[in-house]
Design a protein around this nucleic acid. Structure first.
Lengths: 129, 129
DNA sequence: TTTAGTAGCTTGCAATATGCAAGTGACTAT
DNA sequence: ATAGTCACTTGCATATTGCAAGCTACTAAA
């Protein structure tokens, strides 16, 4: 495992929950990860998600996720220049966290889109496990 | 399942991840849940956790968690009056979210306390899946 | 060759949330 | 009477968020 972007404990405590929250603990970061797991790739695609992330926060979160080695960015075409964001292995490994939230949300927040409904639209997020 | 405290979707979107984050998406709430899963029960025990939650935020988070039906509060003794907080089933069902974060943190943030070390101190958080 | 449009941002600023310290009220123990 | 603990609340400075507007590079249409 390459360790370059895996910052060692610098946060509030050496608890893995606390350290994860130092990186991911806000209302937007994991929604960006969700969108990436759903196959969205570009800045404007993220902006179109129904929660409506403010554009400055999207830019800032993408930078932090890149700095943390969770996301990487590439040009996928020149003329006109277009960029694509992708999850690294470290980012894809957040899938169990999101799946646990989906299961919990479905069980306790009536009206949420179910895991089955998500599977129908976006099999790769939810299948297996 | 009693449904009284399970507020239906009122948030940013009907996505279960987004709805979960509306409730839990900050740097402190899931640390309180962690402490409860570790068996801590009182206000002052939560304050002693190494991350050092500010006392006003602890009070506010406990109220929100109670309002959401994730935590309940009881007097466990009179003379002097003492209070204990406990997770409800809804709260205990957040365990998979925390376990997923522990696994991810252990894999990607060097120096975090491992699941095995946690198991040695607090078997009930971590044992079984 | 102006004009309009899209992608991917940045900037400014008001509103909200957080962090810190100090204070409060009920109680007990000395 | 004094000190100490538990469980908070209050005030205020600082940090983060949310909203709107602007900006740069590019393309496509008139």
């Amino acid at each position: 495992m390459i360790d370059s972007e895996n910052t060692a404990v610098t946060g509030r405590s050496p608890c893995p929950v606390s350290c994860s929250l130092d990186l991911l603990g806000d209302k937007w970061t994991l929604l960006v990860v969700r969108d990436l797991l759903l196959g969205k790739k570009t800045y404007t695609e993220f902006l179109k998600s129904p929660e409506g992330i403010p554009t400055n926060l999207l830019a800032e979160r993408l930078k932090r996720l890149q700095a943390a080695g969770i996301v990487d960015k590439s040009r996928y075409q020149e003329r006109p220049v277009r960029h694509a964001y992708h999850l690294t292995e470290k980012g894809r490994d957040l899938r169990p966290v999101l799946l646990a939230m989906i299961n919990w949300g479905n069980k306790y927040i009536p009206g949420t889109v179910t895991r089955a409904q998500i599977a129908a639209m976006a099999p790769h997020l939810v299948e297996g496990e």
